[in-house]
Design a protein around this nucleic acid. Structure first.
Lengths: 120, 120, 120, 120
DNA sequence: GTGGTCTAGACCACG
DNA sequence: GTGGTCTAGACCACC
């Protein structure tokens, strides 16, 4: 995994976990990798993982069971389709805000998106 | 102009200038407000404006003429439609990459965007 | 380190860093002094160091790792001999251009350079 | 004539005048273009020309005769070969200082210069 | 008048 | 402890 230099690493890790839930790699109820494991895997300071897990817990996405580790909460919110939706909507809103700020109209936005998708 | 607390002010000023070019408020060749003027207008420290203007120059959007001020470069890139297009495409690509990484399909993307626009 | 009054301090610091790379004092991958350390050492405001480090990063000479410091990029460009070569060639070209513009022939250039070196 | 963005325009104009003397375009005793003429020719603010002429007079290169204009002083120093030498030495010294600062040895300097000349 | 640089000192997010 | 950003205020060279 490569990190974008401009956004905090712990945020990117949060999205990585959500992505794994959204794509079914992690299912509700399953155990997250331990802090040390994930720190090793991502070549990152363990404190950074701790921070990410804490924020995820605050958001209600995960829960820690003492002595057992961190788990994906079994929640409607964490079903594959819901998680995809949640992440998606966040990104869409960010995106629309930026475009509007740049003076691009709604029609132009749709056109640009369709073009870009067509090209791929 | 209101500033978003989470992104550096000088970045937001850069976008504001680009937006003014993109919407035709500033045309290629025209003079930007002086550092002190804009600092006053935006209730911001002059150094912050200086920083924004320098970055814009580094990006080739503006140029400074000694003792005369800062000007929009007369450049195809800075024509109204081009500027909008450039900014737009960059954002669209970032956005699509994120969505695909999150496992959202092209069809779902278009649906989500349309929904979000409809709501606004 | 003494500063020349006529050129910005941050530029002189940039050259100092490049010189340290060019002479092998700093090797690719190694950590630069922290902003505060170097500010102390050079009796200069920390902001001035920040500026120098940022410009070096823009030039691809260094990179910052969040919360860890600023490092010399591991790059062919930054090997001792290459760095010396790169800086040197830039200066030589500038120099020759100026001399030719002033109407000095190639032979005269070599003579003048040898004279000046002999004198030192 | 194109101006280097980083050095004051009036300095560049001074060198331009010296260059014209060094290459024989202007001979000792001849009249310089009027301030307005040169300002027009170089697309520059007349004040900038005034400044350049003043500095040249301070250096003893030119003199102004009231109501008649500015003239190249008839001076050994202003003979074609001498002027070339003067400019040349200034540039050579600047150049050597930069190279030494960058850690390039005298031998390497001569090698680099010869290479660069050979290539042209 | 213009922008460019620097200092002093503060606060913040990140690891 | 690390760099990033911002403010306040100063001085300077240039046009």
């Amino acid at each position: 995994m490569e990190f974008d230099k401009n956004t905090p690493i712990y945020i990117q890790i949060m999205f990585e976990i959500k992505r794994r839930i959204g794509t079914g790699i992690l299912s509700p109820g399953s155990k997250l990798p331990s802090v040390r494991e994930l720190a090793d895997e991502l070549k990152v300071n363990p404190n950074t993982i701790v921070r990410a897990y804490q924020e995820l817990e605050r958001e209600g996405v995960t829960e820690t069971r003492r002595g057992m580790g961190t788990f994906v909460v079994e929640n409607d919110k964490n079903s594959v389709s819901e998680m995809k939706n949640t992440i998606g909507k966040t990104f869409v809103e960010e995106f629309l805000k930026k475009m509007h700020d740049a003076g691009v109209s709604n029609n132009e936005i749709i056109t640009l998106v369709k073009e870009a998708i067509g090209e791929n």
